[in-house]
Design a protein around this nucleic acid. Sequence first.
DNA 1: ATAGAAACGTGCAGACTGTATGTTTTTTCA
DNA 2: TGAAAAAACATACAGTCTGCACGTTTCTAT
Lengths: 190, 190
Amino acid sequence: MARSNKERTEATRLALIEAARRLFVEKGYAETATPDIVAEAGVTRGALYHHFEDKRALFLATLEREAQAVAAQIETVSTASGTPCEALLSGAAAYFDAMAEPGRTRLLLLEAPAVLGFEAMGAIDRDNAEGTLKTGLSELLGPHVGAEKLQALTDLLSAAFDRAAIAIEAGADRKAYEAAIADLIDGLRA
Amino acid sequence: MARSNKERTEATRLALIEAARRLFVEKGYAETATPDIVAEAGVTRGALYHHFEDKRALFLATLEREAQAVAAQIETVSTASGTPCEALLSGAAAYFDAMAEPGRTRLLLLEAPAVLGFEAMGAIDRDNAEGTLKTGLSELLGPHVGAEKLQALTDLLSAAFDRAAIAIEAGADRKAYEAAIADLIDGLRA
DNA sequence: ATAGAAACGTGCAGACTGTATGTTTTTTCA
DNA sequence: TGAAAAAACATACAGTCTGCACGTTTCTAT
């Protein structure tokens, strides 16, 4: 059928990543075996180990794809208008919308830290949502907050967002968690 | 040497749990093999699988031990005097002290969620620190907050505590994170 | 058209998990 | 006290997985 090498590579990598995502979401990273992944993707283990250094590298690729999807989904809604407080709350809502995609909390918040470690997760956070959260907080707090405290508050609020996404995924009332987030943010603007 | 069965069991279980803790902290759950654990403990795999159903059960036992140690260490300092705000802050400080024990953040906050899942972690949290945090928050906020919002705020602050412990472990300035926590809590008492 | 590179396939070595089965030590009870 | 039963522990094995080495096919460049 004469596909170019670039097309072949792209198709194979995509099939592997999508198959891996399904299985990682369903069974977790540790319980997912590479024979299962390649069967689901319709390729062989040889192809997997040609395109990825090891199973962890395939997981990292699926994670990056997932994180990019979250960032893209958030940016489409992020008009960032209104008061700093409103901007932060609408950003939180956009984050919860994005994290409602099935499997996302498990991949990004449960499996990824254990597989990739704290540092790699911190790097992923910094590349994605943490920047906008930090600037939003900076506008809320004004210019007279130290960089160190701003970083700490950003980190803590980011953790709160993540935990809220987990709770919502687990069936908790989203409104209650959004209200709690609102209370936290509102309290900071003193 | 004539040890009773109870003594034998206790000694073997303890040796396994302590050896497992060392290796889980050093290499993580997935990268730690049962042959390594039993070698470190000075027993055989037969003993391990006699006392624990599988590797996961051994990890769960080490986790419970670790969580109990944290709870015990916190309770020794928890005089819980002063204003609700002060009580919460001293509780946070006690938590950070307890989490300063080497390996604790990795075991409780990195490995455990992936190995045991969100539900099991929520149960462990509820059995340990979440109760005192919830009552402390309840006193801070007064009696006219709904149970659902109180639960959400507790959950979010608990996540913030955890993230702060991780940041401190990674080398961040503890004072900055304690100040950020103080800001969050202080903002809630409006 | 052909050489070389890239993509892909197959088989293998080493390691690990969990279990089944055997052995030793302790406990029970007659 | 002396077996019998139970508990603790040891060993051997089957099944599976990972990563790599080495083939084979497909594409690319000249």
